[in-house]
Design a protein around this nucleic acid. Structure first.
Lengths: 346, 346
DNA sequence: GTGAAAGCGCTAACAG
DNA sequence: CTGTTAGCGCTTTCAC
């Protein structure tokens, strides 16, 4: 079918191993080739349109020049941004084999098995968070000795590098920023499918609120769901506003756990005649692409997703090269972005 | 290192070939195994945590259970949506090897070579559009006999299936819709890095305008660039409004080649005191995620990107199975979505 | 029903 | 400087 080393060897009148070395350059086999044979071999290869079969090479070297990437979903720009960071860092040495689990634990398992079967050189995974699948991640390291780094979410009992955004700091700096602007009554509306993350967000909020001494006039409004459809989001936005309006001490600032939720809250405010930021300052989280749009201009906490991807990829490459990671838990710091939905209090 | 067929064979006291058959089930090697040996072998495999090495299997069968996907970029939700369609269709039979060219023709070449080297079973590519690279796509089919389907953009002289959104129809139905709403003076603002696509958009616009007989009062305002930064976009939005305002016959409707451009146009309208849709109806193209946001509510032409991905993937699977495609050029039809930036003229 | 042997395309000692 | 020989881990005739 495709042209092989052997065919080139015959055409050029040399042995396969010579061809192998000539094609790959000097270093790999640390062999001295006469310039003429190199030229000759390369010419033949060129003429025949030879492309080395990396599968065969990999089989012989026990390498695949491929890294497995498992993400939760391709919807929205969250994993897309992480993915972008990853591809840029592993390129061109490795190419990513992309899998998606859609929060389905059976699929998560299966995809991981596929990656093992394909003998990827390492895996970067955003696990579904289902503890039932922990064992397979453990197996990855312990029985298959496959380099693994987790992104976005860690896994109890799994001792492997984790790169995630610093959620604690997100709410923490949001509160500090708002406090700096003069706000004293601040509400954090927590919502997410991932209870661990949500808890961290809450902790950051609480810690900051304590530090600035606003415990009595601030609070958390939470709801848990594991499917956020547009309708549910809108519904929750409405409930948040109800809550805010119902409070004895009317809050002056509202922090939402996600930009997309903030968009609905903004819409709800408009419907109810609440002026933003005059009556209420609103702050989102993540800095999704619409937030910068002139019509939205949402103040938010920017989560450095590309950076998460890049750092994770860099750690994986190090692991693949046999280096021991200096730190195993990496938190990438968020930053605050002030646009037009927050204001300084007089 | 990893556990192999041979080890299982030894542990189970049978030959490697028997293990191979037992693991894969009955069909593949059409061999009759006694139920007991099957059980015995599977148990051993289970106990040892055996995962077949698909590389080795692939080398023996000349298959990789992998498809190459080459996209232009991961930024924005355009390719992401196509990618989503692809992954869902090829799953779980194949897993996608993801590459990105970033409109760099050298990188495009290199990534394609990598995919060839990894002997993917087929390729779905959004080519950069650079004609200099045509030859490599040709080589793909002619010398490597690799199934190929192009998405989003075709390539002259390359005779392979192409799946793309029907750009002609996009502007065509936009005009028809607007005409139906009573608009007679319609402007289409064309802008894009890909001149071929832009031309098709223009053609669709012109054809529809002719049909409804509004040639004299309608027109096209075009600008070409190949890098659309936020600043340039904003600048162009401003120029578009200048143009619209400068026309003797003031247009009542404006069609933009991209939603993102429309967002800036909307913002510019606000700045200039042009009320949308009272003074001007605005229609975008693609239906990006922010368009549905309450604060934006952009009327637009929805491009079915997931569908493009799905159809492309389906065609590729057919090609891989040796089927001859019934049709080689597939155009997926867009649809109009009316939100709040367009109105019916009195 | 099961085993032996050849081979997929390459790399990596080991000789010369 | 170059050729020969073993594999890598699997599938697949062909024999028994």
């Amino acid at each position: 079918m495709a042209v092989t080393l052997k065919q080139i060897a015959e055409q050029a009148g040399v042995s396969p191993s010579t061809v192998s070395h000539a094609i790959r350059g000097i270093n790999p086999g640390k062999r001295q080739l006469s310039p003429q044979t190199i030229i000759k071999i390369r010419n033949v290869a060129q003429k025949l349109g030879y492309r080395p079969n990396m599968l065969a090479a990999g089989l012989a070297q026990n390498k695949t020049f491929t890294v497995g990437v498992l993400v939760s979903t391709l919807r929205g720009d969250f994993y897309e941004r992480i993915l972008e960071g990853i591809t840029e860092v592993v390129h061109p040495q490795f190419t990513p084999l992309l899998t998606v689990h859609n929060y389905d634990k059976l699929r998560e398992r299966r995809e991981l098995e596929v990656l093992i079967g394909k003998r990827v050189d390492g895996i970067i995974a955003a696990c579904s968070g289902d503890v039932e699948n922990s064992y397979i991640y453990r197996e990855l390291g312990e029985v298959h000795r496959m380099p693994l780094v987790l992104v976005d979410r860690g896994l109890k009992d799994i001792n492997c590098p984790v790169v995630r955004s610093d959620h604690f700091k997100s709410t923490y700096i949001a509160v500090k920023e708002l406090f700096g602007l003069g706000h004293r009554q601040i509400v954090f509306a927590a919502a997410g499918r991932d209870m661990d993350s949500t808890q961290i967000f809450k902790d950051g909020f609480t810690a900051a609120i304590r530090e600035v001494g606003c415990e009595s006039e601030s609070g958390i409004f939470a709801k848990k769901t594991n499917s956020w459809t547009r309708g549910e989001m809108k519904q929750f936005a409405s409930e948040i506003i109800d809550h805010v309006l119902g409070l004895a001490q009317r809050p002056t600032a509202l922090i939402l756990q996600a930009d997309w939720l903030a968009y609905d809250v903004l819409a709800e405010c408009q419907v109810r005649g609440i002026r933003v930021p005059a009556d209420l300052s609103v702050m989102g989280m993540e800095d999704c692409s619409p937030s910068a749009l002139p019509g939205i201009s949402l103040s938010t906490i920017k989560v450095e997703l590309e950076q998460v991807g890049k750092l994770a990829a860099q750690m994986l490459l190090n692991l693949i090269n046999g280096e021991v990671p200096s730190q195993t838990k990496v938190l990438v710091p968020p930053s605050v972005i002030i646009r037009k939905t927050t204001r300084m209090l007089a």
